[in-house]
Amino acid sequence: MDIVKYFFEEPVLVEPVTPDTSADARRREGPQLPLDALLRTSDYHRGYLAGTNLSTGRVGFTALQNAEEVARALVEAFPKDRWTRWADEGVDALSPEAVIAEWMAPTGSAVLATGPTPPAPEALATVARGPRRDTLAALRTLLDDDALVCFREPAHDGSDWSLFAAHPLRATVVDVLGALTHPTMRQFVLPYQKARSESKFYFEQWQLTSLPTYITEL
């Protein structure tokens, strides 16, 4: 059984889900700022896409048995012709199929972006190369150009994805995940603020039979 989880914050007001002091695998290496310092306006939105393969016990979106099905549905819901990637080898344009492959098996410290116009390559490279405390202006440049910016995030057994945008993402993601009807997959949506501890983030490990009211199963 695959458990797909989407954590949302709309608008962005707070710090990352995992505190800097935590040794959890989801934390990015290097210094991090609270997101209220990263994005000081209610015009920005973020999401975090995670997963657990209960059959294997592996944790991470890329560990899902049905990761390709989920990635394909999400990629097709976003602007498809303007995807750009920054990975260890530099900036390049990607086809939708290549984006799906990247979501399933990220290349290095991959950062993906798409929008109504091609993302600014310099801003994308800056965001990808440095700690977030040093790349705030570049990230705002991308978001203010209405780009969707997707960061690979370390998970225990692979990778998760965080998403940033200047427009709400939750409704689109809920529609996409809710339309998936795979018999060995369950999809959940919940707010960041309710997942600020390890036990709440990994609720599927112990709480699937009695969900709290803030978790919505699609």
Rank of each mutant, 00 (worst) to 15 (best):
D160T: 06
R28I: 03
P19M: 06
V189F: 09
I3V: 15
R140Y: 01
Q187E: 00
L139M: 10
I215S: 05
L112E: 04
E29Q: 15
P191N: 04
T52A: 15
P31L: 09
I3T: 12
L136T: 10
G60A: 10
Q205H: 09
T213E: 07
P116Q: 06
V176W: 08
F201A: 02
V176S: 06
D145C: 06
E76V: 10
R72F: 11
A71W: 12
T52F: 15
E217H: 05
V4R: 14
I215M: 07
A110H: 08
V14G: 14
A110C: 10
K5H: 04
V75P: 02
D145F: 01
T107M: 04
M1Y: 12
R132A: 03
R140Q: 06
V59E: 03
E29F: 15
A67S: 06
T107F: 04
T126N: 09
R132T: 01
R46N: 01
T172P: 04
A110Q: 05
P191K: 12
M185N: 02
P131E: 07
E10T: 11
T21E: 10
A138R: 02
F201Y: 05
R133K: 11
P168Y: 15
E29T: 14
A171E: 13
G108F: 12
R72K: 14
E122K: 15
R85F: 04
L13E: 10
A155E: 03
N53H: 13
L74P: 08
T52M: 15
G178F: 14
V12H: 05
E68P: 01
T135Q: 09
V4N: 09
R196P: 03
Q65C: 14
W206D: 06
L33R: 07
K200Q: 03
I215E: 01
E217W: 04
T184K: 10
L163S: 02
F201R: 10
A171N: 11
G57I: 13
P191C: 07
C150G: 00
T114Y: 11
V75L: 07
E69N: 13
A63S: 15
T18P: 01
Y192I: 13
Q205W: 02
T117P: 00
L38W: 08
P106D: 11
A93H: 10
A137V: 12
S95H: 14
F164C: 03
T135H: 09
V149C: 09
Q205T: 00
C150P: 01
A73I: 10
F201Q: 03
E76L: 15
K5N: 09
D2P: 08
P79C: 13
P16Q: 09
A87S: 08
L208C: 07
D2S: 12
T114F: 12
L64W: 06
T126Y: 06
T21L: 14
Y192P: 07
D144C: 06
E29C: 14
A67F: 04
A71F: 12
A93P: 00
D20E: 08
L177D: 01
E198H: 05
P19K: 12
W103Y: 07
L218I: 07
V59W: 10
W103V: 02
